[in-house]
Structures are given as C-alpha cells and as structure tokens.
C-alpha cells in the first residue's frame, strides 16, 4: 500500500470513529485490510483503495474503519475492575435503584467477553441481592465483533484468557472445538452497534458504564467528545470504569476518581454539559 493510501485509511478512521491509526504501521494496516479486500472481492489492497476513492461507498468505508478498530478482549480483563464491580459497585447501585432495573453498559465490547463477564457476576451475585433486576447492554462499532459476541461461541484459547475454570464449567458447554456460553447468560445481554463518538443523545441512561481502552485508542480531539457522551449517558449517581492508565483529563469536572480505586470514576451530579 502506498503512503497515500495508508494516510487515507488513517483519515477515514479518525473522521468516522475518532480512531487513531498510525499511517506508518503498514504491516498492521495491510494485514487488517487484507481480509476486507478478500471479503469484498477485490484482487488486491490497491483495488480496494481505488474503489474507495472512486465510489465513496459508505459500506466499504465502514468496513475499513471496523477492520481497524481494536479487537483485543479477554474475560475479566485486568481482574481488579471486575472484583470492584462485584464487591462494591453492583451492591451500591442495586441499593440506589431499589427494585428498579440497574442498567449496565459494556461500551466497545469487541467479541463480548466484558459484557458476559459482567453477566456472570450478576448471575452469581443474585442470591446476595434479592430482587436485583439488571439490564445489560453490549455495544461495539464492528458488526462482525457484535455477531461473534451475540453467538456466545469462543475458542478454547479465548475461554482460557481470564476465565476461572469454575466459571467455565458453570456457565459454558463444550460444542465441538468451541465453547458456548449458556443461553441463560447469553440472553441477559442486549447488543447494539454504537459509534461512541457519534451523537449518543438517544442511547439512554446507565448506572454503570465500562468503557475501557477506548479513550487511549482515539485521536486527541475525539477524546473530549467521547467523555461528553459518557457523561451524558451516565446516571447522576452512576459509575464509569476506564482502562489502566486512562483518565478523564479531557473533560474537567464531569467525573471524580473514586479514592483508592484506580480506573473507577463517579459522575459529578452537579456537572452539566452545554447542549
């Protein structure tokens, strides 16, 4: 691929999804787009890019953006946030909501491991939280990722990255070479394609948002927009989980770090976003 083509890919990703793509990483770009070219029936990456330039087709452009989005994911990734969710955040928001449903959003969920990790925790904590009602949502920018998430099928490698063995045998069944999550857990999550830097005013309100390793994948100007969107979508007493080494510095005043709990932020109820 020519430097111009790679530059175009980077611009496209930044403009549509706020994604930071380094145009110098030719190997990454070419390997990710190779599968798009094959799927769309192009003989080469050059043909793919030529078609993009000529037709300016929305579907093709999004195919490229989705292919460049990070897909790294694991069950209970980093462990600590999930322990925090189980032990402190879930009981707190459940008490706050009374009998009303607690709404939880796994934003940029990739193949769904984060959303299902949360679903397993909710399921396993039910006995301690009588009357608990939960609505769990998973969203990603990639259609293919969402399809995989929705299917609930994972490889043996994937179920061994972060999933304790007792949870594997409690919530999964082996299906040939793959492992399938139980229908009970699968049906707890609703999936939706969401571009986190687009207009999210209709996304609804959530008590807990997991949005990890998204800020750090965005170009600088889009980080503020993401944080504004999250502030708008988070209930006044809600909690936001970010990835390790990510912070809310882009948007002053909207979130407060929760003391001694790295990566956990509370919504500042007094903060209002200009319309």
């Amino acid at each position: 691929m020519s430097p111009q083509d790679r530059e175009l890919v980077a611009q496209l990703c930044a403009a549509r999804a706020g994604l930071h793509v380094d145009p110098d990483k030719s190997y990454l770009i070419e390997s990710r787009l190779g599968s798009v070219a094959r799927r769309e029936g192009f003989g080469s990456l050059e043909d793919l890019m030529a078609a993009l330039r000529q037709k300016r087709e929305d579907r093709l452009a999004w195919g490229i953006v989705e292919a460049m989005a990070p897909t790294e994911s694991a069950f209970f990734r980093d462990r600590t946030p999930f322990a925090l969710f189980r032990e402190e955040v879930l009981p707190a928001v459940a008490a706050l909501r009374g009998g009303e449903p607690v709404r939880i959003w796994s934003a940029a969920c990739a193949a769904g491991q984060e959303a299902y990790s949360l679903a397993m925790i909710v399921e396993d904590e039910r006995s301690k939280l009588p009357g608990l009602k939960v609505e769990l949502f998973g969203s990603d920018i990639g259609e293919r990722q969402l399809e995989k998430a929705q299917s609930g099928f994972y490889t043996q490698f994937e179920v061994q990255r972060g999933l304790p063995i007792r949870l594997l045998i409690r919530h999964f069944e082996r299906d040939g070479e793959m492992w399938a999550i139980s229908p009970r857990i699968r049906q707890m999550v609703r999936w939706r394609r969401v571009n986190l830097v687009a207009d999210l005013s209709t996304a609804g309100r959530f008590d807990v948002i997991f949005c990890r390793y998204v800020i750090s994948a965005l170009v600088e100007p889009m980080r503020v927009r993401l944080l504004e969107n999250l502030a708008r979508a988070l209930a006044p007493e809600g909690f936001l989980f970010l990835g390790q080494d990510e912070d809310v510095a882009g948007l002053q005043g909207a979130f407060q770090p929760v003391g001694g709990r790295p990566g956990l932020y509370a919504r500042n109820p007094a903060f209002r976003i200009a319309a």
């Binding site: 694991a74 462990r79 043996q156 490698f157 061994q160 304790p164 063995i165």
Partner: peptide, 19 residues
Amino acid sequence: DEYIMKPFDGDIIAVKFAE
C-alpha cells in the same frame, strides 16, 4: 485449584497462575 486445557501458551499459564 485451576485447570489448563492443552494446547497452552505463555499467556494462558500466566493468567491461570494469577487466577
């Protein structure tokens, strides 16, 4: 205490031992 299904790699051993 834990259980690894072969084939395994370094990542899996590391996360299972942490688990």
